[in-house]
Amino acid sequence: MNALVEKIGADRIRQWLPLATLVILVVAIGIVEPTFLQPASLLQLASDTAVLFILATGVTFVIMLGGIDLSIQSMASLASVIVALTITRLGYGSFVLAVAVGALAGLLSGLAHVKLRIPSFIATLAAGGVLFSTALVISGERSITMGDSARALQEWITGTVFGIPNVVIVGLIVLAIAHTLQSKTRFGRYSAAIGAGEPAAYASGVKVDRQKIFAFILSSGFAALAGVILAGRLSSGSPTLAAELLLPSIAAVVVGGTAITGGVGSIWRTLVGALIISVVRIGMTFLGVNIFAQNIVFGAVLILAVAITIDRSKIPIVK
């Protein structure tokens, strides 16, 4: 009985820990730097978080199933290159093309994972290599800057509506779509079921393979969208544009409280996690930490968050 009470207590703490962390961090930075709490700064924070949040949202679907996607940063970079190369010819079509390529890449790595029974981390590691190589080849191994005509087409990313940056609105739309998918559809329920216990889900008639492939399509598709937005914000595309974003994205998902073992998690948690990562980044910039050295903190945060959120009953042997 005592153990049960303890378990519920611990679960509740785990559930609210990320949000509490976020609030404490924001307040702490607000005390040191009061301008941080002004609406303009907070909107800036939201726009800077959007790309990270969209990347993390995609990979949340895969992590919910108990898998992982290590190809998102390569996909996002490839998408930025596709946009930069085709925007003058295809106009808005270049964005659609980039996201479609993302969905296709997700389909292929999903198929490799499910049909060839290759563990997801190795299938997506390999897929990431293929995508990176593709980006290098089509871009001629260089960064492509977009001209003024392209910038006009990217108003939906860089502009503002009633003072709110469009990129924040795009982020909110992604949040709404992803949240609906995850909590209101059959796919979302099945994902949670597969993550919680794959054999049971399979035995009760869930088409496990199909759900998994769909999750990889979402992950890769959202990664491509994130790449499109990143390209718009930086008005360039390059094969290494998003290379530094893999670790923060996975960290965002896990810090938000989604367990790496699957089954437990939500898009809201990922939003909280992404905001935490952004706030930590801003905090480190205030403290003058070198941008590359920030990876030390993110790496440590990732390991710590995994250690806290992981469900050890599901993996009797940790490999």
Binding site: N295, F298, I303, V318
Partner: peptide, 22 residues
């Protein structure tokens, strides 16, 4: 800490490169 090796080493990968950068 019973953290799966791919997560542990993913974190340590970036910590290592980060320390080298620093």
């Amino acid at each position: 800490l019973k953290v799966p090796s791919f997560m542990t080493t993913l974190g340590v990968w970036f910590i290592g490169v980060g320390v080298a950068n620093a």
